[in-house]
């Protein structure tokens, strides 16, 4: 049991430290552009990927760094991709918000809110027909629940009998507006309208998310339909790296910060083990950034390649 808790802490911490450093990179110019960070939400990808098979395809959103890392994408290559280097992921074509690594069954981030749902339905159709035994999973935010793509895909998945898992990360904000101001009914309530099962879970506990995802995976197989997991969490940063968050009520970040999944995960550990783990991840992340900075820039002559098959 202890080993799993150390793993959860270490994997969430790795995501947190990499993203905190990436934020500095955006600010000092080592990363060109912006980044959408998942600080405060790390327990969801870490917990979900514990329960999924390693080959289960995962589709994420632009807030997908945690998902890529939780699927086992090597940090050096991940960081290099965000830095626009010639990484083994997308060779600088994806960047922070649209990277993928099919070798790790990470089918990609998506920079269109809700845009990954139809693709996940299709992945699930193919895996069902080919009887691979794999169940695709897609992460979306609470804001995506108001996109037509999500509605169409959940309905079609339900009526055609296609099993996949949709994980709704309800982080309190749809971009810069409180979700409750924009959404008539919570995600899990809407699941009933598609005749699919929904599981609500504390999204700030990796073990709880893992358990919910395990159940969701079983339900997807037994019902042969989509299954929803609504994970309640809190976004502890801006919508994107340049977001000043002036819209946040005073004191909210402090209050939400008390729910930080990382603090919770650490509190479950023996302090000596926790500190040793912390130091180990700090060193690992520093090393990954140093090695990522050594990756070459993409070759200019590559820019027009791969538009078409030939």
């Amino acid at each position: 049991m202890m080993a799993a808790e150390v793993d959860d802490y270490r994997d969430m911490l790795r995501i947190r430290l990499i993203e905190e450093e990436l934020l500095k990179c955006v600010q000092d110019g080592r990363v060109i552009g912006s980044a959408h960070l998942c600080i405060g939400q790390e327990a969801i990808p870490v917990g979900a990927c514990r329960a999924l098979k390693s080959d289960d395809p995962v589709v994420a959103t632009y807030r997908g760094h945690g998902w890529a890392l939780a699927k086992g994408v090597p940090p050096v290559q991940f960081i290099g991709e965000v830095m626009g280097r010639d990484s083994t992921l997308n060779g600088g074509r994806g960047g922070s918000a649209y990277l993928s690594s099919p070798d790790h069954a990470f089918m990609g981030e998506n920079s269109i809110v809700g845009g990954g749902l139809p693709m996940t339905l299709g992945l699930a159709m193919a895996h069902q027909r080919r009887a691979t035994g794999l169940i695709p999973a897609v992460s979306i935010g609470d804001g995506a629940m108001n996109q037509g793509n999500v509605h169409e895909s959940l309905n079609m998945g339900s009526v055609l009998g296609i099993p996949f898992i949709v994980i709704v990360e309800n982080n309190g904000y749809a971009e810069m507006t409180p979700s409750t101001d924009l959404t008539a009914t919570p995600a899990a309530v809407r699941a009933a309208a598609y005749a699919i099962e929904a599981i609500e879970v504390d999204g700030n506990s990796a073990s709880a998310v893992a358990e919910a995802t395990r159940r969701a995976r079983e339900l997807a197989i037994s019902t042969q339909r989509p299954v929803m997991v609504e994970a309640h969490t809190r976004r502890l940063g801006g919508h994107y790296s340049g977001d000043a968050q002036a819209y946040r009520p005073k004191g909210e970040l402090e209050e939400w910060g008390r729910l930080d999944p990382l603090t919770r995960a650490r509190s479950l550990l023996d302090p000596t083990v926790a500190e040793a783990t912390y130091q180990q991840v700090v060193a690992e992340v520093a090393d990954a950034f140093a090695r990522a900075a050594q990756l070459p820039a993409p070759l200019e002559e590559e820019a027009m390649k791969h538009v078409y098959a030939n």
Binding site: L117, G122, L123, M125, S153
Partner: peptide
């Protein structure tokens, strides 16, 4: 959803 389903199934 139809076109996305075609996309995802072609990817797989």
């Amino acid at each position: 959803a139809m076109i996305g389903a075609a996309l995802g199934s072609s990817m797989a």
